[in-house]
């Protein structure tokens, strides 16, 4: 009888205490870095060899007038240039009066979170079409959100968006320049400048490593 009651108490207490397990938290800031790429499957890179790249990174949102956020521009632009050249592309300067096949645009957004928040990830990201690895994509019930351990804290996150557009293939009707490739780097804006530089360089290299179709055709 006593044993039974002890077991009831232990089991009920365990359920109440844990109410669902979750993984342990990541240890380092770069453990949260994410690199996403997508491309237009109907676009042909055949014959495309040159690109433009602006001399600064566009900042989107409230931080756009903050000069501090531009301190990594050179790192980002150098890494983008180095990786594109590594894939066989030639960088052109629009001031030379030439036309490039593609235009690369890097943009940064930052978001600050504090106290208990419920971020609206769909607002900035959009619904993910689904993974192929497990057969069926996640159904519409799958939604984005922060892991529960991040619900109540104070932190800044940032996303670096890199797009490749074809300025010679403008849709005259919709007046849109088609974006043929998108790369996104997302993570915490935390750590030393040296650490940020390392993370930017390694993740931008990964962005191109997982986009082998960008390699120029001979």
């Amino acid at each position: 009888m006593l044993l039974s009651r002890i077991v009831y108490v232990i089991f009920a207490s365990a359920l109440l205490a844990f109410s669902g397990c979750s993984p342990s938290e990541n240890e380092f800031v770069d453990d949260f870095d994410l690199v996403f790429t997508s491309y237009d499957t109907n676009y042909s890179y055949s014959g495309k060899r040159t690109f433009f790249l602006p001399d600064s990174v566009v900042i989107i949102g409230p931080a756009e007038d903050n000069a501090e956020v531009h301190r990594f521009d050179a790192v980002i632009l150098d890494a983008l240039t180095r990786n594109m050249i590594g894939l066989g592309w030639e960088k052109l300067d629009p001031e030379d009066g030439v036309t490039a096949d593609l235009v690369m645009l890097p943009m940064v957004t930052t978001t600050d979170f504090s106290s208990c928040v419920m971020p609206c990830w769909e607002c900035g990201w959009g619904y993910w079409g689904g993974w192929g690895a497990w057969g069926d994509p996640w159904g519409p019930g799958w939604g984005w959100g922060y892991p529960p351990v991040m619900g109540c804290s104070s932190f800044s996150t940032g996303s670096l968006y890199v797009t490749l557009s074809d300025p010679n293939n403008v849709n005259e009707i919709s007046e849109e320049i088609p974006v043929v490739w998108t790369g996104i780097l997302n993570g915490f804006l935390l750590g030393s400048d040296a650490g940020m530089v390392n993370r930017l360089e390694s993740n931008l290299s990964q962005m191109f490593a997982q986009s082998p179709y960008l390699k120029t055709q001979p």
């Binding site: 669902g20 949260f32 491309y39 993974w131 990964q206």
Partner: peptide, 19 residues
């Protein structure tokens, strides 16, 4: 890990769990 889908690829630390 890097996982690929139709026209997309994602590289990130990935943890799956369920209760």
């Amino acid at each position: 890990i890097t996982r690929t889908g139709e026209a997309i690829a994602v590289t990130a630390n990935t943890v799956h769990y369920t209760n």
